[in-house]
């Protein structure tokens, strides 16, 4: 009937996602106290990315959007990855 975003996610799903996000926050705080050195930084970025993915997919309904929009997001993420990758490549070679 409507041309809005017709897919409605239930209350329970939203609350479950929120719960996962809070648990992941607790995990990332705990992990940072473990003194894992380099892997600690990697772990915190990975956990943050899982959290970001949960927000994007469910809260922002990306899971139910058209493939075209998902492709656009992928292009954005790839652009960011290329810029960061090339910068670090440059730093690695120069210094």
């Amino acid at each position: 009937m409507n041309k809005n975003n017709d897919h409605t996610i239930g209350f329970k799903t939203y609350i479950a996602i929120w719960f996962c996000l809070v648990v992941l926050t607790a995990i990332t705080v705990t992990v940072s106290g473990l003194n894992m050195g380099r892997y600690g930084a990697l772990a915190s970025v990975l956990i943050a990315s899982v959290k970001a993915a949960l927000v994007l997919l469910f809260f922002m309904h990306l899971k139910y959007e058209r493939p075209f929009l998902k492709l656009m997001l992928l292009v954005t993420i790839c652009t960011i990855a290329v810029i960061i990758g090339l910068t670090f490549f440059d730093i690695g070679v120069r210094y």
């Binding site: 926050t25 990332t28 705080v29 940072s32 106290g33 473990l34 003194n35 894992m36 050195g37 600690g40 930084a41 915190s44 970025v45 956990i47 943050a48 970001a52």
Partner: peptide, 10 residues
């Protein structure tokens, strides 16, 4: 992303 990057460096 801001939270671990500034508050949780070890």
């Amino acid at each position: 992303y801001l939270f671990p990057v500034f508050y949780l460096i070890n």
